[in-house]
Design a binder for these strands. Structure first.
Length: 463
RNA sequence: UCCCCGGUAGCUCAAUCGGUAGAGCGGAUGGCUGUUAACCAUUAGGUUAUAGGUUCGAGUCCUUUCCGGGGAGCCA
C-alpha cells in the first residue's frame, strides 16, 4: 500500500513528525473560520484519527471547509502529538485531496441512530461504530475458528450447500429449483414432477452439514465445516435469521466427554483471540452496547464449564421450588426460562447439560444403556442461552436403524449415512455452533440482525 | 406462528379530556483560531405507516393491512 492505515499510525510509540498519507471517510467535521478538524476513519480499527487543516492549504476555502460527514478524502501531512485532549496523535495536513463528496441527503449523522433505522440503510451502516466493530469482530472470530481447528489437525471440509435430501429433520428448508413456477411439469396425479427439475429430484438449501461431515470424519478423523446454512422457518426473534453461518466439527474415535472437552476449549480459544485482537471494539461494546459483555466474556475465559446431566438439571429445577411458566418434569425439553435459571442463578458460569431424553433429541444421537437417554450436549452461557449443541453419534448400525424405524424414517433415503455404520464404523462425535450467535454473545449485540452484514429474515431480503 | 407494545419532519422524540401538529439533531445560509455529538444566529422542511369507520371536529377513539420492538415457540 502506498498510504498508511490509521491503525498502524495510532499504534506507534511516538509521532516522530512522520510524513504520512491516509485515505478514509469523515466521521465528523468541525469548521471554524481559520481552522478545521476532520475526524477520519478508514475502518482499520475502532478509532479514527484527527486531521487539522488550516487556510494555508491551497484548497481550504474552495473545498476543505465544505467537507462533512461521509466524504472520502486522501490526506497527507505530519503526524504529531495532539494538542487536544481526546486523542494521542493528530495529522497536521499539508494536502487534502477530495476523493468523493456526499450529497446533502447523506443519512448518517454524528449522533446515535436506532438499529431499526440503520437496517433500512444497511449498505451504509458498516460506517457506524457498532456495525464497523461487529464486522471486525466477525472477521477475527472467523480467523480464530480456522486457526483453532487447523492447529489441532482438523481439516476444513466444504460440505454441499445444495442438498437433495428433504429429510434432514432440522427444520423447514428452502427449495432450489429451475422449474417455471407458473407452469411446472406435472405428474398424472397433478403433483409437480421434480424428475424434470435440474437435479432430477427435489433439491434444497442445506440446514446442516453434519451428516456429510460425518462421512469426512470417518476418513480424515478430524474435520470441521464452516459455511452458510439456511432455515426457512417463520421465526421472528432477536436470535434467528434465515441465512447464517455455522461451524460443525466432527471427530472420529471420540465420545461425548471428548466432545465436551473440544467444545469448551474451542469456545475459550476463539473468545480469547477476539478479545485480544479486537480489544478496542470489545471495549466499545462493553461500554456502549451491553455493560454485561465483559462479564460474559470473563465467565467464558476464566471458569471451567459446569457439567450436569439433564436428569440433574431437572432435579435442580424441581428443588428450586420456583414457579416457572412451563412446569418442570422429567421428559420435557428445557425452556429458555429453565436454562436461564440454571446458568444465571445456580452456576453463574457456562454449563454443559448432557444425556437428554431421546424423545426430544435427533435420531442420530448415541443411545445410552438405559434406553431412554442419548449422549447429547448443550452448552449454555449465562445471559445468552444455548450457543452450542452437539452429541456423540450413534455408530451402531442396528441401534440406528431401530431408532429410525421408531421415528418412521426411510432407511433408503439415508443409505449412504447408514453405510458408514457398515464399513468400519467408529464412535464419533461433533457439535454445531451458530456463528452469528457467537458474535452476539462476544459483543453483547442484542439482535442477531446487527450481527450480520445483510440479515435475511422472513419478509425481508433487501440489499 | 402466538401474546403484549409501538409507528408523528431526513433522524430521535413531544403534542393535556377528541379542539390551530412542535422541539432537538441533520440540511441550507451566515458567524466563530484548538474543536471532540463543537458552539451562536437565520431559515426551509408534514397525506401523523396504510385502508376504512365514529364525530361538528381524529395524531388522539374503533376496525383492517403492513412494518418494527419485547416475550414465547421452533432452533443455531
Amino acid at each position: 500500500m502506498k498510504y498508511h492505515r490509521i491503525k498502524d499510525l495510532l499504534l506507534r510509540e511516538h509521532a516522530d513528525q512522520m510524513e504520512v498519507t491516509i485515505k478514509g471517510w469523515l466521521k465528523t467535521a468541525r469548521h471554524s473560520k481559520e481552522l478545521s478538524f476532520l475526524n477520519i476513519s478508514d475502518g482499520s480499527c475502532f478509532a479514527g484519527i484527527q486531521v487539522v487543516a488550516t487556510p494555508q492549504l491551497a484548497n481550504y476555502e474552495t473545498e476543505v471547509i465544505k467537507l462533512d460527514t461521509g466524504c472520502a478524502v486522501s490526506v497527507t501531512g505530519t503526524l504529531v502529538d495532539s494538542l487536544g485532549k481526546e486523542q494521542k496523535y493528530e495529522i497536521q495536513a499539508s494536502k487534502i485531496e477530495i476523493v468523493g463528496l456526499v450529497t446533502e441527503d447523506y443519512p448518517l449523522q454524528k449522533k446515535r441512530h436506532s438499529y431499526e433505522f440503520l437496517r433500512t440503510i444497511a449498505h451504509l451502516r458498516p460506517r457506524t461504530n457498532t456495525i464497523g466493530a461487529m464486522l471486525r469482530v466477525r472477521s477475527a472470530a472467523a480467523f480464530a475458528i480456522h486457526q483453532f481447528f487447523q492447529s489441532q489437525g482438523f481439516f476444513y471440509l466444504h460440505t454441499p450447500i445444495i442438498t437433495a435430501s428433504d429429510c434432514e429433520g432440522a427444520g423447514q428448508m428452502f427449495r432450489v429449483t429451475v422449474l417455471d413456477p407458473k407452469n411446472p411439469p406435472c405428474k398424472p396425479d397433478g403433483s409437480v414432477d421434480f424428475s424434470q427439475d435440474f437435479f432430477g429430484r427435489q433439491a434444497f438449501l442445506t440446514v446442516s452439514g453434519q451428516l456429510e461431515a460425518e462421512t469426512g470424519a470417518l476418513a480424515l478423523s478430524n474435520v470441521y465445516t464452516f459455511g452458510p446454512t439456511f432455515r426457512a422457518e417463520n421465526s421472528n426473534t432477536p436470535r434467528h435469521v434465515a441465512e447464517f453461518w455455522m461451524i460443525e466439527p466432527e471427530v472420529a474415535f471420540c465420545d461425548l466427554d471428548g466432545d465436551m472437552e473440544l467444545a469448551e476449549q474451542f469456545l475459550k480459544s476463539i473468545t480469547k483471540y477476539v478479545v485480544e485482537k479486537c480489544s478496542d471494539d470489545i471495549a466499545f461494546f462493553s461500554e456502549f452496547v451491553d455493560k454485561n459483555t465483559a462479564k460474559t466474556i470473563d465467565t467464558i475465559l476464566n471458569s471451567s464449564f459446569a457439567r450436569i446431566t439433564y436428569t440433574e438439571a431437572i432435579d435442580i429445577l424441581l428443588k428450586s421450588k420456583k414457579q416457572f411458566e412451563y412446569p418442570v418434569e422429567w421428559g420435557i425439553d428445557l425452556q429458555s426460562e429453565h436454562e436461564r435459571y440454571i446458568t444465571d442463578q445456580v452456576f453463574q458460569k457456562p454449563v454443559i447439560v448432557t444425556n437428554y431424553p431421546k424423545k426430544i433429541k435427533a435420531f442420530y444421537m448415541y443411545l445410552n444403556d438405559d434406553g431412554n437417554t442419548v449422549r447429547a450436549m448443550d452448552v449454555l452461557v449465562p445471559r445468552v442461552g444455548e450457543v452450542i449443541g452437539g452429541s456423540q453419534r450413534e455408530h451402531r448400525y442396528d441401534v440406528l436403524t431401530q431408532r429410525m424405524k421408531e421415528l418412521g424414517m426411510s432407511e433408503a433415503a439415508y443409505w449412504w449415512y447408514l453405510d458408514l455404520r457398515k464399513y468400519g464404523s467408529v464412535p464419533h462425535a461433533g457439535f454445531g455452533m451458530g456463528f452469528e450467535r457467537f458474535v452476539q454473545f462476544v459483543t453483547g449485540i442484542a439482535n442477531i440482525r446487527e450481527a450480520s452484514l445483510y440479515p435475511r429474515v422472513p419478509g425481508y431480503a433487501e440489499f
